[in-house]
Amino acid sequence: MTATITTTLTVNGRQICKAAPAHLSLLRWLRDVAGVTDPKYGCGEGICGSCTVLLDGEPVSSCLVLAAQADGAAITTASGLLEPDGSLGRLQRAFHVTHAAQCGYCTPGMLMAAAAALAGSQRLSRQEIRARLHGNLCRCTGYGPIVDAIELAQDEAADDRGK
């Protein structure tokens, strides 16, 4: 039985190994133990999506997973979307261009939901993009600019593949 547990996660390509209280959620482990503060605490119930990260490529609410449950996994957060040189990645640039962030609290989660949505090979319609964002709440933008951003990023990726 253990009150403290050592967890090793590869966060945005960097391996982090830390001992921490066993009851910490992945969200708290990332923020308070590993210092990765992109995912945000919103509701604690998996409804708002502001804590969304990719766990081995799958979108999860990091507030509803224990860090210990994720031991050994690869985690991607919003800063994992940066280009290797530290400049904004495609999705982040698109969010910037279309003004898809206002207060910004939902943005790190939105970006990860978007990354998960665009990971598949099939082209998503606007309606399908909206459907993929079910479960990520934004109280500022009215969602339009966010859908614009994801569409833009999708188009750019398609252009790149066409080249």
Binding site: M1, S25, G44, E45, G46, S61, C63, V65, L66, Q69
Partner: peptide, 26 residues
């Protein structure tokens, strides 16, 4: 705890206060 999608929400809200959590997800 399996997927945690019900239990963790209850824990975060203080509605469940287990002293030991047994992880079967792995």
């Amino acid at each position: 705890i399996a997927g945690g999608q019900s239990l963790m929400a209850l824990v975060n809200l203080g509605l469940a206060q287990p002293e030991v959590v047994i992880d079967i997800s792995r």
